[in-house]
């Protein structure tokens, strides 16, 4: 019965289609418009086809000449336009001279509001359904530093809870990054300003870096990351928050699209308590240098020798 119905519908559609073609054939003018339409379709698909071919042969970011970078960026912008129907800018700003980025976080001020987490997701265009968050806020027992007994799913009525403290963990931008050494295709590297970045188009998705990282800072796009077009941040960087695809790694990159222009990372700007301090480690006048010289600071898992550039401190 159902098959019959299907056949009928098929017949109807085929019949109507034939009818339309007949109408087109009879009137000359209509035929002409049909031809131009078809030409447009062919042209568009041709562009898409050539784009996909070019992206297959796209080089490693650091081996591209400046002209090749421009061509690649134009292609990536077309791709984003097709996917999100929105014009985005893709920046390629190099590291600032005499700059080494460092981060300090005051754990006596962090109250676990998770404002930084959501600000990061909105800034960096993480897929809303891929469940990727660059920052995990760990709720810890007061007086304990046992990361294994921490809880990042805490959801009480109000924070801070009594007898707990909060320890946000994100990419530590190690000076000696184990993830970079683990990558078999060199798709990830440390920039001159100390930020570990990924060429998302060169990544093969083997997830070796994910296992090499002792801080759970690297995240994998298990499915296609979907961002609602109206929520997509159009100001992006090639090594930063440009739209990613399924099957690649991503991680915190200290918001290179913002910090290389002198702005604060999104997490720092969103923090309501002022617990997060970002700055240039090579500038003796900077706030972070004051903290490192005057406060009790520690880093996570220092014994591994990864030399993180992310310090925690107390008042």
């Amino acid at each position: 019965m159902t098959e019959n119905l299907k056949n009928n519908s098929n017949q109807v559609s085929r019949r109507s289609l034939l009818k339309k073609i007949g109408v087109l054939g009879t009137t000359g003018a209509a035929a002409a418009t049909g031809v131009t339409l078809a030409a447009q379709v062919v042209e568009k698909s041709g562009q898409e086809f050539s784009d996909s071919l070019d992206s297959f042969f796209q080089k490693h970011y650091r081996r591209m000449s400046p002209e090749e970078v421009q061509v690649t960026i134009a292609r990536l912008q077309r791709k984003a336009k097709r996917k999100y129907n929105k014009d985005i800018s893709i920046d390629t700003a190099p590291p600032l001279p005499v700059t080494l980025f460092g981060y300090a976080l005051n754990i006596s001020k962090c109250k676990g509001y998770r404002k930084c987490v959501d600000a990061c997701v909105e800034e960096n265009n993480q897929g809303r359904d891929t469940q990727i968050q660059f920052i995990r806020v760990l709720e810890m027992e007061r007086g304990s530093m046992n990361l294994e007994e921490s809880n990042h799913y805490y959801d009480p009525e109000t924070v801070p809870q009594k007898g707990k403290f909060y320890l946000p963990v994100q990419c530590m931008q190690c000076e000696n990054p184990p993830c970079v050494r683990a990558c078999p295709v060199k798709a990830t590297w440390k920039e001159d300003d100390g930020v570990v970045v990924i060429d998302y188009d060169w990544c093969i998705g083997c997830r070796y870096c994910m296992t090499a990282c002792p801080y759970w800072a690297r995240h994998f796009n298990w499915n296609e990351p979907h961002v609602p077009p109206e929520e997509l941040n159009p100001v992006t960087h090639y090594l930063g928050n440009r739209p990613r695809s399924k099957g690649v790694m991503e991680k915190c990159m200290f918001c290179v699209q913002r910090t290389r222009k002198g702005k604060q990372p999104a997490c720092m700007e969103a923090c309501p308590t002022g617990a997060r301090i970002f700055g240039n480690l090579l500038d003796p006048e900077s706030e972070i240098r004051y903290i490192l010289e005057n406060k009790t600071v520690f880093r996570l898992k220092e014994d591994l020798g990864t030399e993180p550039k992310f310090w925690y401190f107390t008042d």
Partner: peptide
């Protein structure tokens, strides 16, 4: 500073079950 409601917690990954600590 007065206590506040925190933003929602991260989702538990697909296919995993949340087991509270302890």
């Amino acid at each position: 500073i007065k206590p506040l409601k925190p933003n929602p917690p991260p989702k538990v990954r697909k296919g995993l079950v949340f087991v509270p600590n302890g």
